[in-house]
Every structure is written in C-alpha cells, then in structure tokens.
Design a protein around this nucleic acid. Sequence first.
DNA 1: TCTTTGAGAATGAACGTTCATTCTCTTGAT
DNA 2: ATCAAGAGAATGAACGTTCATTCTCAAAGA
Lengths: 224, 224
Amino acid sequence: MPRAQTAAPPATTRPTGSKPPRPKTDRRSEILAAAQRCFVRSGFHGASMHDICNEAGMSPGNLYRYFPSKEALIAGIAERDRAEVAQEFASADLSRGFFAVLEGMAYHHFSERPDEQVKLCTEIMSEARRHPEIARISAAFDADVRKWLIDLLRAGADRGDIARDLDFDAVTTMLMVIADGVWWRRALEPNFDAKALLPIFMDITRHMLGSRTANRVRAKEGAG
Amino acid sequence: MPRAQTAAPPATTRPTGSKPPRPKTDRRSEILAAAQRCFVRSGFHGASMHDICNEAGMSPGNLYRYFPSKEALIAGIAERDRAEVAQEFASADLSRGFFAVLEGMAYHHFSERPDEQVKLCTEIMSEARRHPEIARISAAFDADVRKWLIDLLRAGADRGDIARDLDFDAVTTMLMVIADGVWWRRALEPNFDAKALLPIFMDITRHMLGSRTANRVRAKEGAG
DNA sequence: TCTTTGAGAATGAACGTTCATTCTCTTGAT
DNA sequence: ATCAAGAGAATGAACGTTCATTCTCAAAGA
C-alpha cells in the first residue's frame, strides 16, 4: 500500500535571488501534463511510470525527485483541477442575471471543457474509491462546488431572479447530479452531444428554481 | 493484450442424458459472485486473481477452466446485470399509470439497488474505456435501456399520461443522464441519500413530459 | 460385490512478465 | 570542490496465467 503524501517540489531554494533559474516552465507542471496525457490514453493502471517518464522526456529517477509515487501524480492532477474550477466559480458575474450565468457555466461544463479532462475525471473518481488521499481531495472538491453553487443560488434569490423559499440543498444536489451524469456520458460515449441537452436543462432548471412545486422547503411533517 | 472471448462452460457433455449432474449451483455463477465481492472491495485492478480464487474457494487452475481471463470475469458480470435490468423493464405494467411506473422504477434505481451493484458499475465503466469487449457490452446495455425507455414514453403518450409531441430522444437522454448522475454520486458518497431526491426528480420529470416548453420537437430551423 | 477404468474436476507450484521504485553514477554550473 | 539535476540500469515484489499432476466417482466388467 503506497504512501500518499503530496511531496513538495525538490527544494526551490532561491537564496541569493538574482535571475530566474528555470529556462523551461515549472518541472512539476510538465510532469503532471505528461501524466495526464498518459492517464487519458491508457488509464491510471494502464499507464506505466516508464510511459509517463517517456512522455515527460525524463528518467524515472528524476521524476521521483518531484513526485514520491504514482498515486501522488493523480493527487497532483486532482488538486490542480480543483484550483482551476475554483477560478471559474470565483469569476462568476451575477450582474448579467442569474440564468445567464448558470447557462454560461452549463455550456462550459457540457461542451467547452475538453474531453481529456472528462476522461481524466473518471479515472480520478475510480481511484478515489481505493486511495484515501485521492478520496479526500475529491470530497473537498465536491464540498467546494456545493458551497459555491449554494452561494450562487442564494445570490440569485437575493436578486429576485429565482424563488426565495427553495430547498437550496436539494436543488443543488440535483444540479450536481445532472452535471455528474453529463460528464459520465461524455466519458463513455465518444460522440455524445451534451450541448444538445442545454435547452432542456435550462428549462427544467428554470422550473426547479422558479415555480411553486415540490422542491420547496416544507414544514416538517409529524409535528402536532 | 488479452483475448476477450466469453468462454463457454467447460463441456457440459451429457451423452447418455439421464439425471442432472450438478449437485451445487452453477459454478460460473458462484465465481462471478465471488469476483463481484472482490471487485467491490478492492476494485478491478486491486483484486488479484488469487483473491478471487480464495473468495470462490477454488484454485486458479480450476477457475481458468470457467473464465479465460480476468477481463472475462468483468464481462460476465456486466452481461449478467444486463439480463437482470432487462427483466425489470420487461415487467413494467403501465396499467397503473405512467408516472406510477416511472416513480417505482426511479425509487428502485435510487434506493433499492444495492450499493454493491452501484460500485461495481463504476468499475465496469472504468474498464470499458480500456477493453473493447467490455465497451461493447456496456454500449449494448445502454442501447437497450434507451430503447425500453423510449418505448415506455411512447406508451405513456398513447395512454394520454404525457404529451404526444415530445422530443422523445432528448427527454430520454436527460432521464438517463440523471440516472447516471445518481449512481455516480451513490458510488462516491457513501451516505448519499438518493431517495431524498425523488420528489424533485418526479417534479421536473412531470414538467419535462407534460408542459408546453423547450423540450418539444420544433420545426427544423433554416428551412424555407 | 469388488475391481478396473476413464474422464472431468480440481490443485497449487512455477513461470515469465510487468511495474513501481531505488541505487549508483555522470554532468554542469557555481 | 560542491551540489543540484538528471540519467538509466537494477531490483524485487506482485501479478495473470499455465500445466503437470492428483482426486473423485460413476459405471462397466468380473
């Protein structure tokens, strides 16, 4: 059972601090990019460390100076993607109206995000079932997304774009479920046209968030 | 690159043809059940053939008389599950009303199907990306489900339970996407309460299938 | 009834390979 | 001379798979 530390870069000591000593871009990023290509091509278990070394143009001994294990590579990729998504949510601009923002994000998720990332995501999820460290990262990722989504919904409610008495938790869960499902299908069906689903997605979302129906908070049953 | 044949049972020669020679239940089923437990516990790659042999109470040599490779085990499980789901769809009884049937099936899918099968499903899907034979089985599975769902919708429309001018393909895709998403979350979040989503799911489904909105078939744009 | 026979079921040690990881050595800049 | 950066052969464990062999037992022959 291999260890799961994320391993700091191999001493980025810049003591005298004169000129930048890195002619190429950050070595760690290069390695992660190479690993990503290999994982997408052959899967986490199908890709050997030698494959990844070749792809990165680097010897095994050297690669291990940057990442302590194969698992740390997947963990590194997951963490990097998490930062990227954080960026996307942080840049949401509600002044265009709630549904415009949501549709933009949906379009991005359904269509713009490259297939590479979608496939990689399934690899990460599969490994999350086995490696606690990866499970931790992906659970944290998930909690982040949920929080951002709920904040977005609350802000939309404040603006009056959507109903105020929603069961925000349930609605958020449903949105995430749909998003997950879309990615699962994208990963599995090479020619799946997710963006064709956008109209219907926006339609049911408007319904969920706006009309007076089952997804509202209700008084708890069983009370006197 | 291992072969992918599904391997017939090891010669069920019954030449004289008198009494049934099987004292125990079918050996192949026992092996699949053992493999399923191992795959759920450790994943496809985490479970070794020796693990599976132990779980099945059988030596490797003997196990290989029933299945020609590890891959054939996953393929066998996938095929077995496909048959089971076929059963479920075949027994749908529309006389109770379309939405009652749909809600029953959703409840079954969200809650009753055991977590074991859900986890296993993610393993199968992951491997489908690598092994063509497994990809074939799971694509066939998918096509079956899609066909059954569309038939169900058509029947519901004939009964007058749902709208007649739906874009059946798009709606079916959306239903499958949601179903996929629910399973993905069930696999990832150990305490995910899918059945709490049922009301909201039924609500948006009624909306999709009944009201006059974006998910209707429209005249193709651009025509004269 | 007892023995022989033979075929299928099952065994488990061994094989060859693969793979993640480590070790040792070289290079090149300061 | 020192030390980070890198190379690549080496290592050893683990794995899927195979195969020579043994076990079981029902039926045929005596």
